[in-house]
């Protein structure tokens, strides 16, 4: 259980061209927590996510997953612990069929035979996509692609899920389906999104990044009540917390 804890300690990242994307970011996430990382475009969200999975290494500071710092030696284990769902599912579904895509991770972990079969169908079941197993990714709708992309990560049995813009580009029905799904997971979750209504439903805690620093960190509802803070960070109160345009009723 201890390895479900993520600690980000004075993380700083400077890109080769000199852009300082993250400046001394610190926070920690405990077991089972669901945390949203929000902020305007260019606030450093993507850079942060890439560090969590070891794709970028810090210019200074460090990240610890379950008290183990991420470095070359621990990387394979970290990547198994932290399941990363990318924004564009087309980047994540690179095999000819859904089944092979979901099996890619387990095969790399050395699974085979019945164990593999169980693992893949289990992951597909979790996202209600068993019927898609034999389909080619390009035949799926965006919503199906997103769910299958999550299954490809679930099949690796990660302890922590990192999702980049999970509801991006989904129609309302598919979005609702995905939100329900996310709420069912008991993993620790880190979600980045501009869909603040989804954040309000899925994440109890929110961290606002602004210009590469943590501008605010606290319960989601409290943060979304702070109009001045949201304005300052180029954000806006979720629609569900704004007044009703028809009946004039007050939001939450």
């Amino acid at each position: 259980m201890s390895h479900h804890i993520i600690e980000v300690d004075r993380l700083r990242h400077v890109y080769p061209d000199g852009t300082e994307a993250l400046r001394d970011i610190s926070f920690s996430i405990t077991h089972g927590e669901s945390v949203a990382v929000i902020g305007a475009n260019g606030a450093g969200k993507s850079t942060l996510l890439l560090h969590l999975n070891g794709h970028l290494s810090p210019s200074s500071g460090e990240i610890r997953i379950g008290h183990v710092p991420i470095d070359k030696a621990t990387l394979p284990k970290v990547r198994r612990t932290v399941g990363m769902v990318f924004q564009d599912p087309d980047d994540q579904l690179f095999m000819p069929t859904v089944y092979e895509d979901v099996a890619f991770g387990p095969l790399n972990l050395g699974m085979s035979g019945e164990e593999l079969e169980r693992c893949v169908s289990g992951a597909l079941q979790r996202v209600e996509a068993e019927h898609l197993a034999r389909k080619a990714p390009y035949r799926l709708s965006t919503g199906e692609k997103k769910r299958v992309a999550i299954a490809t990560v679930l099949s690796m049995t990660p302890d922590i899920l990192v999702l980049d813009e999970p509801t991006n580009g989904l129609d309302p029905h598919a979005r609702r389906q995905l939100i329900t799904l996310l709420k069912e997971f008991h993993h620790s979750k880190i979600v980045t999104s501009h869909d603040l209504d989804m954040v309000l439903e899925v994440c109890e805690r929110t961290i606002i990044l602004n210009g590469g620093v943590v501008r605010a960190d606290g319960p989601t509802v409290d943060i979304f009540r702070d109009d001045a803070l949201l304005r300052e960070c180029r954000l806006e109160k979720p629609l569900s917390m704004q007044g009703c345009p028809v009946c004039g009723g007050k939001g939450k």
Binding site: M84, D88, D91, M156
Partner: peptide, 13 residues
Amino acid sequence: ERIHMSMLARGYD
């Protein structure tokens, strides 16, 4: 590059 990342994330070596 992104595909490569997502492959690495799933244990590709």
